[in-house]
Amino acid sequence: MNVVETSGLGKRYGSAWALRECSLTIPAGHVVALVGPNGAGKTTLLNLVVGLAAPSAGIVTVLDGQLAGSPAALDGIAFVAQDMPLYKNLSAADMVHMTRNLNRRFDDSYAKARLAEVGIALERKAGKMSGGQQAQLALTLALARRPNLLVLDEPMAMLDPLARHDFMASVMAAVAEDGVSVILSSHVLTELERVADYLVLVSHGSIQAAGAVEDLLAGHRLLTGPASEIDTLAGRLNIVHAQRGEAQAHVLVRTDARTDSVPPGWEAHPVTLEELSLAYLREPGAAWLPGPARSRAAHSMEMAN
């Protein structure tokens, strides 16, 4: 099952494209980190997935072919928007009651038990809660809907480090208990590095890399060697990004059977997720997309060249 599938997806605000030619497949059962700089199109992509925005081009389906925003899609996806919007004048109990009333599925006892667990009094108004409590309340409301897919847009942005830790622990506990698929967005990869097993890298309104973290890590390696030899290396290896120092250069390359041998004078290291994503973000022309999406991206790159 795929939780998200997009094909040629684009979203235009006025004359500016916030997202363009986005073809992506996210299989179920992952914790997906949607990472990219501010303004890259992360929120736009999430709004399209949860049905808040309608595509200007292409299509987006969720939960095995349901049109995003359709009743079945709304039923199965719980979304926590940026800044955790809650009705400030309603108590936690009222927010629970409201969310129960607005959904076919809602686990009332789970919601109340979870609120007790994180120390939120039911009669407390949402507007009087700390940022961490608001985030926990929003997350509780989302999880109590027993969604197939949980979408969190910049969930950590307004939380202090302790609240971030608690929040992520809650998300991961839900993943362990229910096996819910999760998509989290952030402009800081390190927030998600420990929890995500799938990475979607967005920049300048298009998808630059998407794939399971272990595939991505296995598919790349970092070579360190003399800076003067980079040009000869370029002919032989599939270089994503080269960082030249005075004497030494660090080069991120894709690994495949043809290039598996390390050139003499060079040293190979396994790459970290952060190094990998930074390398891609510094090279807007590079893309790593699995499946049919790759050929399309390669095609558009050829067109660009």
Binding site: V50, G51, L52, P71, L74, D75, I77, A78, F79, A81, Q82, D83, P85, L86, Y87, K88, T99, N101, L102, N103, R104, R105, A138, R145
Partner: peptide, 14 residues
Amino acid sequence: ETGTFRYAWTQGFG
């Protein structure tokens, strides 16, 4: 103004 439509419009009720 408060952004709560993002909550309300993504609930199952539609």
